[in-house]
């Protein structure tokens, strides 16, 4: 790896560790061993959003050409959000693509992702199914996103109705995450979800 990438990452780590956000446990960076190229990130779900009280893990890969090219970032924690793939965790965010600038840092990236959780951009979606629900049925989107936060990110809000529907599918031998994805994508309509899984 080129000298500049390694040196910059080292400096950025020190900056993030000392930052206010890190003190408040709202963002976190950890190196995977001693390899500068593999970094584990974590952001707290912003208050007053369906992601509140959840912690979302991120995989951050630093290219050898950093900071001239952006880091490659994806969600490791499963999340229901119009700009994040519910399957792969891939993120649609302009600064991770053509709006990257060399003076941006990992701290700015993490804060921007937090801002994205607070304000989705459904017209520039990564996950069309989620974006559609966000636009067509906002209340259901919110409860679905909150439920995913509870199931995957350590959120605290329970939803017995959704639990029941998941269990109905589990009793039929469906794998848990598949059940969650199918029900979420079918607006929690059990018949449609069954049809999608068994067709």
């Amino acid at each position: 790896m080129s000298n500049i990438a390694a040196q910059r990452i080292q400096r950025e780590f020190n900056e993030v560790i000392k930052s206010d956000e890190a003190q408040k446990f709202s963002i976190k960076l950890e190196m995977d061993g001693s390899d500068f190229r593999h970094i584990n990130g974590e952001i707290a779900g912003p208050p007053d959003t369906p992601y509140e009280s959840g912690n979302f893990k991120l995989e951050i890969k630093i290219p050898d050409t950093y900071p001239f090219n952006p880091p490659k970032v994806k969600f490791l924690t499963k999340i229901w959000h119009p700009n994040v793939s519910s399957v792969t965790g891939a993120i649609c965010l302009d600064i991770l693509k053509d709006q990257w600038a060399a003076a941006m840092t990992l701290r700015v990236v993490l804060l921007s992702l937090q801002a994205l959780l607070a304000a989705a951009e459904p017209d520039d979606p990564q996950d069309a199914v989620v974006a559609n629900q966000y636009k067509e049925n906002r209340a259901l989107f919110t409860s679905t996103a909150r439920y995913w936060t509870t199931v995957h990110a350590g959120g605290k809000q329970l939803n017995p109705d959704f639990d029941k529907k998941i269990h109905t599918l589990l009793d039929l031998g469906v794998e848990k995450h598949q059940a969650l994805v199918a029900l979420s994508a079918c607006d929690w309509n059990l018949d449609r979800a069954l049809e999608q899984i068994f067709s």
């Binding site: 000298n3 500049i4 040196q7 910059r8 400096r11 950025e12 900071p67 060399a102």
Partner: peptide, 14 residues
């Protein structure tokens, strides 16, 4: 320097 984050009184990493 905002790109390499090294001081101007030093030089760039190259």
């Amino acid at each position: 320097c905002g790109i390499c984050r090294q001081p101007f009184h030093g030089c760039c990493p190259y």
